[in-house]
């Protein structure tokens, strides 16, 4: 018995869900986390390292690893034994075409990681508050994003695309619901 075993057991007991939040820089990842934690969102500067925030939701403890957008992330995944349960991918709706392609490629590469096998995927289309138009028109945005990111080709991951806004808090809780439902169903069904 040692710390490593304790961590493993503790995780099961606490119903901890390890979520990694990624996306290109300036997509609004840290703002989303701050908004969820009810903190002040007006003073977010680029994340250079990473932050772990714990967020209780629907009886689970979500450990959200918010990782800066501009670093090569690959080696990071291999970091220790804890498997990542869920991947949140944040996209900025105002992103132009080239960047979106980069975004798609990054997502594809990331999903091939061993440690992410079977993990659920939530794509948050952030900054919807900057777009004119009512909520009903959002479904076309979602469809476009599914096309752009070629999500239909993904196998082995349950996924969902949600338009959201970090500033207004729109669809943030709904996203977390998806996370806990997906992971809870898969890993914590009877605990």
């Amino acid at each position: 018995m040692g710390l490593l075993t304790i961590i493993k057991k503790q995780r099961l007991k606490d119903k901890e869900i390890r979520v990694v939040m990624l996306g290109l820089d300036n997509a609004g990842k840290t703002t989303i986390v701050k908004s969820l934690l009810g903190q002040d969102c007006s003073t977010v500067s680029p994340t250079l390292g990473f932050n772990i925030q714990t967020l209780p939701h629907a009886g689970f403890r979500l450990s959200i690893w918010d990782i800066g957008g501009q670093r090569t992330l690959r080696p990071f995944w291999r970091n220790y034994f804890e498997k990542t349960d869920f991947l949140i991918w944040v996209v900025d709706i105002t992103t132009d075409g080239n960047r979106l392609e980069e975004c798609r490629d990054q997502l594809k590469v990331t999903l091939t990681e061993d440690r992410l096998s079977g993990a659920g995927l939530l794509v948050w289309i952030n900054k919807m508050d900057l777009i004119n138009g009512d909520v009903n028109s959002y479904s076309t945005v979602v469809d476009q994003m599914v096309e752009l990111l070629e999500l239909k080709q993904i196998k082995g991951h349950k996924w969902l695309v949600l338009p959201c806004s970090a500033l207004s808090g729109y669809n943030l809780i709904k996203g977390l619901d998806f996370v806990t439902e997906e992971v809870g169903d898969r890993l914590y069904r009877y605990t």
Partner: peptide, 9 residues
Amino acid sequence: ASIQECIGR
């Protein structure tokens, strides 16, 4: 593992 927690949190 502890260092990760320290730096992350």
